[in-house]
Design a protein around this nucleic acid. Structure first.
Length: 362
RNA sequence: GUCUGGAUAGUUCAGCAGGUAGAACGCACGGCUGUUAACCGUGAAGUCGGAGGUUCGAGUCCUUCUCCAGACG
């Protein structure tokens, strides 16, 4: 299901085969939590060379509910995206949003639905059933992510529990056509990271995720954790760095051997006016762009840069026009997918250093 | 010409038992990373139309002037 086709130092290019096809790595997944990438439809995602997206099993289970998705024979038909879909378990939401009133235990977690107040329990078994019903290409295990700056004891507990959940996810995952990825935790404690990476690697997962990073720690710390994680994972498995990220972080991680990414960073930043360009970030909301006839990025070939001025995009952004969010999101994701394409090529051509130079503005 | 209302941050306005000013937007600068978020945070910016007066103290009360809006002539 995963084949490494090229290597350049520690970075690699490969092919991930799932139920819907073969996808070249490294790749970046736009986040479509509720089966929708905010402001873009599936045609536009395709247009910019997206091969995979990630949705959220937990939120789809609450809304619209599994019966609706089953009626479509799975999420691919439901949202009309026929390429790769990962589903995240929902542990992240319950943990990071305090209005979910979470209650983690070794059995899983109990929570109140924010939509109708109904009580639910997410156990590893239940999460596997949900993800199988949704029919994603890749299911992620239920895990518990410790927040940044948690004490060693808290990280130890979350990691231990994550391991417990991982074993049960393996046990209860039945759909042989769906890949299952485990998630390593360990916070920013090197020994816990190493231990968790080893443990998750010992289970028969199709891929391994590095969880609990990009949660506020400095870049150097994150790099250190990635290094330790990768060293303690088998080379042949695909590695997925969850929640990352910015161009700089992705380049650093690919250099260390990470294959898969997802993040809200480019899309949320787009909505907030922060655009990715060949010269670094550009804040379209600043008044210096108010009358600018320049494109966002003269070196970008996306339809936004080809057709609209900074002044127009500035206007849409300041006027809170939905079209502004759409165009800015489109541009940022185009930038990300172009970056991933270049990374794949650079690995194949052994030109990673040159590429890193090219993106020096970040 | 008379009457009435108004003149407070770049803009639109709030403030009024008289105790040396606030909001929103704008501006500047940060932030955003497994998304229930077209968001969050910080900051700069006003001799309260001018001149007098009453008062310990006036954006707030009185007089007068200027300008704006409306009504009546």
């Amino acid at each position: 299901m995963f084949k490494i086709t090229h290597k350049s130092n520690k970075s690699r290019a490969g092919i991930l085969r799932t139920r819907t096809g073969e996808y070249e790595t490294p790749f970046f997944m736009p986040v479509a939590t509720k089966a929708a990438a905010k402001y873009l439809d599936v045609n536009e995602l395709g247009e910019i060379n997206t091969s995979a997206i990630i949705s959220n099993a937990f939120l789809l289970y609450l809304k619209p509910g599994l019966d609706v998705i089953k009626k479509h024979k799975g999420i691919h038909n439901f949202m009309n995206w026929k390429k790769c879909i990962f589903t995240d378990s929902g542990g992240f939401q319950v943990l990071s949003l305090n209005n979910f009133k979470d209650k983690f235990s070794d059995n899983g977690l109990k929570f109140k639905s924010p939509f109708d107040g109904s009580l639910h329990e997410l156990t590893p078994k239940k999460v596997m059933e949900i993800e199988e019903a949704i029919g994603s290409d890749v299911a992620m295990c239920l895990d518990q992510m410790p927040l940044y700056n948690s004490s060693r004891e808290q990280v130890e507990q979350a990691t231990r529990r994550t391991h417990l959940f991982a074993e049960q996810c393996v046990k209860y995952h039945k759909d042989s056509k769906q890949l299952l990825f485990g998630i390593a935790q360990g916070g920013t404690f090197p020994d816990l990271r190493a231990e968790s990476s080893k443990f998750i690697s010992s289970l028969p997962f199709d891929g391994i995720a590095l969880g609990g990073l990009a949660v506020g720690e400095p870049l150097e710390k994150m790099k250190e954790m990635i290094k330790i994680s990768i060293e303690n994972m088998p080379e042949e498995k695909p590695k997925y760095l969850m929640g990352v990220g910015s161009p700089k972080e992705i380049i650093e991680a690919v250099e260390q051997g990470v294959d898969i990414f997802d993040s809200v960073w480019p899309t949320r930043n787009a909505r907030h006016g922060s655009l990715l360009t060949s010269e670094g970030e550009l804040d379209i909301g600043k008044s210096i762009h108010k009358t600018s006839l320049l494109p966002v990025d003269k070196n970008c070939n996306c339809k936004v840069c080809k057709n609209y001025t900074r002044a127009y995009l500035h206007h849409l952004h300041k006027a809170n026009e939905p079209l502004g969010n759409k165009l800015l999101t489109y541009h940022n994701l185009f930038f990300m997918q172009t970056l991933m394409q270049k990374l794949r090529k650079a690995i194949k051509d052994s030109k990673f250093e040159e590429l890193k130079q090219e993106y020096g503005g970040f």
